[in-house]
Computed example of a mutant assay.
Amino acid sequence: MVDFMLSELGTNNIKAITTEVEGESSQIFQRYTMEKVEEIADGNNMVCHKINYPYAVHYCHVGGRTKTFMVSMIGVDGTKVKALSVCHQDTSFWNPKGLPFVVLNVKPGTTPICHFLLNDQIVIFPSKKATN
């Protein structure tokens, strides 16, 4: 997995981050207030999704040109979250009947598509200090 990441990202100077939840929420769904949005990466990244398996297995893929943000939020019950959000910059090759385009009523390639990542998913990207 590490060799795949390094070869796909073209550097051995990488960062790996995930969504962080402080404490346990008393509610499954709740409203959150965004307190801070910080851009942490701009460029190619890799996302690893946890696969339901008896031991740790992840499906990793290159996300293409993205902007990655860390969004600090607080829930109505006081739960604090630092949530990863990935914004795909080039969606021109995506299926126009895909859910993001239907829900947002936009066409592929016209606007970035952003989404939050769960705390069992990992984003890997070149460090800002990366050298090839």
Rank of each mutant, 00 (worst) to 15 (best):
Y55D: 14
V106M: 01
G43M: 00
T33R: 10
G78W: 03
V37F: 03
M70W: 01
K82C: 10
T110C: 07
L84S: 10
K107N: 10
Y59I: 13
G109L: 03
S26F: 12
Q30M: 08
D77E: 06
E39V: 12
V102M: 09
H49K: 10
M34L: 14
N95D: 08
V21M: 09
H49G: 02
Y32W: 00
Y32L: 04
Y55I: 14
P96Y: 01
I74L: 06
G98K: 01
K82S: 13
D42A: 13
T66Y: 00
T66M: 07
F93M: 14
T18N: 05
I28R: 10
Y53F: 13
V47E: 11
V86A: 01
K107S: 07
T19V: 09
V76E: 14
G75I: 02
N44R: 07
L99E: 03
G98P: 04
P54G: 10
N95L: 02
T66F: 01
K97W: 06
V76R: 07
K107V: 05
E20G: 06
N52V: 15
D90Y: 07
A56T: 13
Y32A: 00
F93L: 12
K36C: 08
G23P: 09
K97G: 03
N45G: 14
W94A: 00
G64I: 01
H61A: 15
T19C: 03
K36W: 08
Y55F: 15
H61W: 11
E24H: 14
V37Q: 12
L104H: 11
L104I: 07
I74V: 09
N52T: 13
G75D: 03
T68P: 08
K107P: 04
A56E: 14
F29K: 13
F29L: 12
S26H: 11
S72Y: 05
P100M: 01
A83G: 03
H58F: 15
E38Q: 13
S92H: 06
V102Y: 05
S92T: 01
I40M: 04
D90F: 05
M46S: 08
F101S: 00
D90N: 13
E22A: 12
